[in-house]
Design a binder for these strands. Structure first.
Lengths: 201, 201
DNA sequence: TAAAAAATTAATCATTTGATTAAAATGTTT
DNA sequence: AAACATTTTAATCAAATGATTAATTTTTTA
């Protein structure tokens, strides 16, 4: 009747097998197109087990979604709020870390954006991203350096240049062989460009 | 038994009412989460009529998708292949036209990208975007001006700075009052930045 | 205006799908 | 090993959903 308290981990625990399968299938097909049977099959378990461990498709999805959401945004906040870092350092680290993360998880941003798009209400509460950014050390530094340009423009450009290639990958780079190398190369370019943009008068 | 040959257009024709409803519902929920009943209701028609006119959900969707795909990319190609335009002119017009289009259709890029992501095989054939770009006048001009930087980096940055705010709108700007004004303001900024990036050594 | 064609509807089907149930298998405790 | 709890399975349910059918209404044609 009740859920397993101590992890059994015979190999990997059943719960973990289901989570892993859910990760894979949800990320590939999205929530709506995913059938719980797909996940059960991928995990090599009986369909009823999925409901035994996670109650419902929705509950299982929320776990995956929260994980992916955090993965996508946890890169940002430690950096943009670190008062010990200069503006230039923030930019460098941000671009470096983000592209490294995205090379490892190229489908991450489009997955998160797609699901939020289809179901914005469900995630309304969790999203104070704009507020968190607005009050950040980064924005303060930008405003100080360039009072004449809205910081949001610089941030959007930084994120756009960094994230967009991964978001557009299915269309623009679906079978581009040197994609990862190109993104590595891009780190230095973006960093230089953003710095220059903030110098331009 | 057979489909209407001449448009009846009593008010708007039934076919057009269905298309319009399909546009709205598909764009909002995506293919998988859309039920044909939603579309029928939105169009104010009987469900069977939808199949009478369009055979299947899939066929109807393909029509909408093709339309949206064209809308998203038809901005690019006339411009990037116009040999009469200088590089700077291309950039100006591209940014100007794209942002204007996106202010009118903010959900366009994320819709198209989301659907391609979930079903890449279905759209494989139609996507020679990378090839079309590779052989464009724009790429030639960029390569000539800056043989030391892959043109794809400039193009990705241009598209990233332009499209990304709309793609990320549900997360970053979901209730940002001055969004459209901000995007208008952005036209000149992006144009200036891209030109500067191509001058930087 | 009668006949034919086209458009529209209500009712119904067959599948799919998320979820549950009751029983069986496995593991744990005493 | 007996009693109990936990995990797993096969079978089944009920609702949702894409699609069809057969009849009715409306429009067009002759």
């Amino acid at each position: 009747m009740s859920k397993p308290v101590q992890p059994k981990s015979k190999d990997t625990s059943t719960e973990e097998k289901i989570i892993e399968a859910a990760r894979k299938v949800f990320m590939q097909k999205g929530y709506a197109a995913t059938r719980t049977r797909d996940i059960a099959e991928e995990a090599g378990i009986n369909l009823a087990l999925l409901n035994y461990y996670f109650r419902s498709k929705e509950k299982l999805f929320e776990q995956i979604m929260l994980e992916k959401f955090r993965q996508l945004f946890s890169v940002i906040f430690p950096i943009v709020n670190d008062d010990a870092l200069t503006l230039d350092e923030k930019i460098e680290i941000l671009v470096e870390n983000y592209i490294s993360l995205l090379i490892e998880n190229p489908e991450l941003p489009l997955f998160v954006l797609s699901e939020i798009r289809v179901n914005p209400e469900r995630f309304k509460v969790r999203l104070q991203i704009p507020d968190l950014l607005r009050n950040s050390s980064l924005v303060r530094q930008m405003r100080e350096k360039r009072p004449d340009v809205e910081p949001v423009h610089f941030i959007t450009s930084l994120l756009g240049m960094t994230l967009f290639p991964f978001v557009a990958k299915p269309v623009l780079f679906s079978e581009y062989p040197g994609f990862n190398a190109l993104m590595q190369e891009r780190k230095a370019l973006i960093t230089g460009w953003i710095k220059a943009m903030m110098e331009m008068k």
